[in-house]
Amino acid sequence: MTSPLPLPRPSHEIRARHTPTTVTVYQAYSPRIAGPAARDQRFPAAWKRERMTWVKPSFLWMMYRSGWARKEGQERVLAVEVDRAGFDRALAGACLSAHHPGVHPDRDAWRAALRRSPARVQWDPERDWRLQPLPHRSLQLGLSGEAVRRYADEWLVSVTDVTALAHAVHERVREGDEAGARELLPPETVYVPEGGAPGWSPA
């Protein structure tokens, strides 16, 4: 008897490090922001709350975006553990950052939803251990207005500087040591928000 074929992986999938009460997202900043944030376990005054902030549940996508924590202004990577209920509320009220015909009937409806929503969802190709694009996509969540204030003041549980981890993984990548790189990567599993996948998910 032949074994059943594995189910295809969804094209849009949230994968994250999470517990029953928290989810970890990543952000990259200059030392001026990241140092005080990790030390004081809160974002400093220099962190602008009036601007949109983007969080990424995927460690490897953050490595791609920050160039392994080497790009200017992104030299320090933070693992920010946040309250899962708050994160799920942001997802439930989020709007896609680009028009998707299967979600909004036309661009005017999408623009109206975008104006109302304090959170935006963007899907970008996930990355492998060498930061090459994969066929499935990874979540970025943009927070603005009330969502950004809640993120900083209510949802935040802990802030950990993981720059040394980023550099250690990169060193193994440069050596071609796939097993060594994977051994260091934070464990990320499929994340299903409370109530299931939001309506904006094309998956």
Rank of each mutant, 00 (worst) to 15 (best):
P31K: 10
G67M: 02
W110T: 01
G35E: 07
Q41T: 15
P44W: 02
P36M: 07
T53M: 13
K56Q: 13
P36C: 11
M63W: 06
D106M: 15
E50T: 12
Q41E: 05
E81Q: 02
P57V: 02
K71H: 12
R42Y: 06
A98R: 11
A45Y: 14
M63F: 06
S58I: 03
A109W: 11
Y29I: 00
A109H: 01
S66H: 09
F43A: 01
R51N: 10
P36K: 02
A109P: 02
Q74M: 14
A34K: 09
R32P: 06
H99G: 03
C95K: 02
A46E: 11
G67P: 07
A92N: 13
T53V: 14
S97F: 11
G102P: 05
R89K: 05
Q27W: 07
A28M: 15
K48P: 04
L78P: 00
P101F: 10
R49I: 05
A37Q: 00
V25L: 10
A79C: 07
E81Y: 04
K56R: 09
S97Y: 09
R49Y: 14
G67Q: 08
K48Q: 10
D83F: 02
L91S: 01
R70L: 08
C95P: 13
E75D: 12
P36R: 01
G35N: 12
A28G: 10
D40K: 05
V77R: 00
D108C: 04
A85H: 01
R107D: 14
Y26A: 01
W54M: 05
L96W: 09
A98Q: 11
I33W: 01
